[in-house]
Design a binder for these strands. Structure first.
Length: 736
DNA sequence: TCGGTTCAGAGTATT
DNA sequence: TCTGAACCGA
């Protein structure tokens, strides 16, 4: 039986799957069968009776990854995966906190604030305390609070070195107090509160430590400081952490991920079993050679080299365009050819560094009538009308939730203006209670309207108490007036449909019964009540915002950022906008280890391709309303020349990028195009777009010319050396 | 409460 | 250049 489970694994995969119960670190390269190893490991542990399904905890970063894991395990073993602890860090912490809310100091009905809710809570707190939001921007406070929590620090533990900093810390304390008062937790609070619960409550900690003999972690390179601390606490000194990750694919430092956790884990747990999965089952040789060669330029690595038993395949194609528009035009042509050759559009991905780059490409695709799908954008539970409906539901569940209260107190409009709300907030503050509770303290007509609102919520709560979830939602969108409001709105049709979809989502949620299992059989003392379906649904809405991509269905080209492409694979991949300043991004160059992270990002991009890889860059690009002249990304130069096939001629190897090269050579895209953009502005014989050489900074491109006479200055993009502004009378520039 | 105007900012993102 | 948020007048 176990033979079948293990059949087809290569030696390294087999070794990883069948490791003894010890701390283990699996360095899983791109396309090396990482998820297969993780899920087969779990199935093997269960099948060989080394662990029961309840004795395993597996944690991921996204709901998608968790679902995939559950699905694969289900297909391998005839067991019920429902009771298993497989989920995201946030989902599992939520589960623990629901089960032990009292010990964690939370009300049973605590609500989860998403990022937008958190920001509005911060703004409200700033206002209530008369703090200058220009001196203390809400966004900065939000980032400060989140990163403190993600480092495991409460306000009292944050080091203060100056008065400005002190104010942030003070605000952090006030914010936490407000959340506590209102019975809400933000995303990082879920983790921190759960960590503190396990840290301080010995019986609970021991209970879970004895239960989860095997703790498996996916994408370990993406863990932040707090997540690693949480894992260490949960594993205790006896349990086996099985960490799977790839330091070369660490691309989330900007949101707190600490790759250093990998090395720390190896050291702190004295990991004797570091297994490298280097055989790649995805890409052909030339693509892997490119990826390997590129990533070798990074100094800080644990070290890995991908290989394949497949052939070298096609060369990596490189295209130099005159402008971003021409790059898009070429791309459209190339896609047409691929599709004409029989390749499905969904098997082609167009990747870019920043979302803004999609516009030019979308424009070209749209005009060419090629179906495409852009990843990113508003998700279902983030839509305004859905958030409004959820706010009503939250108030039913927890009247102390002031964020929810303020969102809908006057939506749809019911004569409760800003003035009234301010009055109410003052009353609430002097009485030291929530808005809902303070309503009685407001007199006059305003008070009557407020009382009517509270009465609406109260009666909804009372009347829906024993109804099935879908009917509660239905009653709320109806009785709140939301549905009627959007029905009268000119462009409200889609919103009405979304609200109706919310009723369906509630019904589907109950049908899947995910919520009931979430809390069953998981309590330490077995005495904790199940959360109501409504509470579970609200958690679900916060923790899983829905699909982050356009509707599926038709066969469409896939457009997305490189970040969004992580974990995916396609037959053909276009990596566009490979220009200095864009990819690698100029902001990253300033950051500590920023360039290495950009290179890892490029590594991720390259390894998405199975059979065909295109790299492209443009000489000029419209950015922030200005035409910018860039030079080819250094990353292209870091790839093995032998595996590249230039679709556009390069005039002089040493000169790097030259302008109008393809024009002279007559290799034009088959679309009507203008000559590459070129400024007419000239100064002392220099012009924008011109390639020049500086003794110290090397080769660069003039991107701006200003002043005149002795004050004539040129802004020059020296690529790796950055953008410099030089006085033409002083700098000795050599025309390349 | 709406619709228009103005202004700053423009990087990647999950929960 | 374009977008979203903030702001102001009717």
């Amino acid at each position: 039986m176990s033979d079948r489970l293990l059949a087809g694994l290569n030696d390294q995969q087999l070794a990883a799957v069948t490791l003894p119960a010890q701390p283990a670190l699996i360095l899983a390269g791109a396309g090396s069968g990482k998820t297969r190893v993780l899920t087969t490991r779990i199935a093997w542990l269960i099948q060989t009776h080394q662990a029961s399904p309840q004795g395993i905890l597996a944690v991921t970063f996204t709901n998608k990854a968790a679902k995939e894991m559950v699905a694969r395990i289900s297909s391998m073993l005839p067991i019920n995966t429902r009771g298993m602890w497989i989920g995201t860090f946030h989902g599992l912490c939520n589960r623990l906190l629901r089960a032990h809310h009292r010990d964690a100091g939370l009300p049973q009905t605590f609500q989860i604030l998403d990022t937008a809710d958190q920001l509005s809570a911060i703004k409200r707190l700033l206002k209530a305390n008369g703090i200058d939001d220009e001196k203390y921007p809400p966004r900065n406070l939000q980032v400060f609070i989140s990163s403190a929590k993600e480092s495991g620090l409460r306000s009292g533990a944050v080091e203060v070195d100056d008065p400005y900093n002190r104010k942030f810390v003070e605000f952090y304390a006030m914010y936490d107090a407000q959340c506590q008062r209102e019975g809400v937790v933000d995303f990082s609070e879920l983790l921190l509160r759960c960590y503190e619960l396990l840290l301080r409550n010995e019986p609970i900690r021991t209970h879970y430590q004895e239960r989860f003999r095997h703790v498996l972690v996916d994408e370990f390179q993406d863990t932040n400081t707090l997540q690693y601390k949480w894992l260490k606490l949960l594993a205790g000194s006896h349990n086996a952490i099985f960490a799977v990750g790839d330091d070369d694919q660490s691309i989330y430092a900007f949101r707190g991920a600490n790759v250093g956790n990998m090395a720390d884990f190896e050291r702190e747990f004295r990991v004797s079993n570091v297994i490298r999965l280097e055989q790649n089952y995805r890409s052909h040789g030339n693509i892997l050679d490119a990826a390997n060669a590129l990533i070798r330029h990074n100094a800080r690595r644990l070290g890995k080299n991908l290989w394949t038993s497949e052939g070298t395949g096609e060369p990596v194609r490189v295209f130099e365009a005159g402008s971003d528009g021409l790059e898009a035009a070429w791309l459209v042509d190339e896609v047409k050819n691929l599709v004409a050759d029989g390749l499905a559009r969904r098997e082609i991905a167009v990747l870019y560094r920043a979302n803004a780059q999609s516009r030019v490409i979308e424009h070209a695709l749209f005009n060419a009538g090629i179906a495409y799908r852009v990843y990113g954008g508003l998700r279902f539970f983030e839509r305004a009308e859905i958030k409004h409906a959820l706010a009503y539901l939250r108030l039913i569940e927890n009247p102390a939730d002031d964020t929810a209260f303020l969102r809908v107190v006057n939506f749809p409009p019911r004569g409760i203006g800003a003035r009234t709300v301010e009055q109410l907030q003052d009353t609430a503050k002097t009485q030291d209670q929530g808005l809902y509770a303070a309503v009685g303290g407001v007199a006059g007509k305003a008070g009557v309207n407020l009382a009517a609102f509270v009465k609406l919520i109260d009666s909804l709560r009372f009347e829906t108490a024993n109804l099935p979830l879908a009917e509660i939602v239905e009653a709320v969108i109806d009785r709140s007036g939301l549905l009627a409001h959007y029905k009268t709105e000119k462009e409200g049709q889609e919103r009405v449909e979304n609200l109706e979809e919310l009723v369906n989502a509630a019904a589907a949620f109950v049908a899947e019964e995910g919520y009931a299992q979430d809390a069953s059989g998981t309590q330490a003392d077995g005495a904790v009540a199940l959360p109501s379906p409504l509470a579970a649904f609200l958690s679900h809405a916060s923790l899983e915002a829905g699909e982050n991509q356009a509707a599926e269905g038709q066969d469409a080209l896939q457009l997305m950022t490189v970040h969004a492409a992580k974990g995916l694979e396609f037959h053909a991949v276009f990596i566009t906008g490979l220009e200095e300043g864009l990819f690698p991004h100029e902001n990253s160059i300033q950051e500590l280890d920023g360039l290495e992270e950009e290179r890892r990002l490029m590594y991720v991009a390259i390894t998405r391709a199975r059979r065909r890889l295109y790299l492209s860059f443009a000489q000029s690009r419209m950015l922030h309303g200005q035409t910018r002249y860039g030079i080819r990304s250094r990353f292209i130069g870091e790839l093995p020349e032998a595996g590249l096939k230039w679709l556009t001629p390069r005039l002089r190897e040493s000169a790097g990028l030259r302008f109008g090269g393809w024009h002279d050579a007559g290799v034009q895209p088959s679309v009507a195009v203008a000559t590459p953009m070129r400024s007419h502005q000239e100064k002392d014989g220099y012009r924008i777009g011109q390639t020049v050489r500086h003794a110290r900074f090397g080769e660069g491109v003039i991107i701006r010319l200003e002043g005149s006479g002795t004050d004539a200055r040129a802004k020059i993009n020296f690529g790796a050396q950055g953008v410099k502004e030089l006085l033409l009378s002083i700098a000795k520039l050599e025309v390349a």
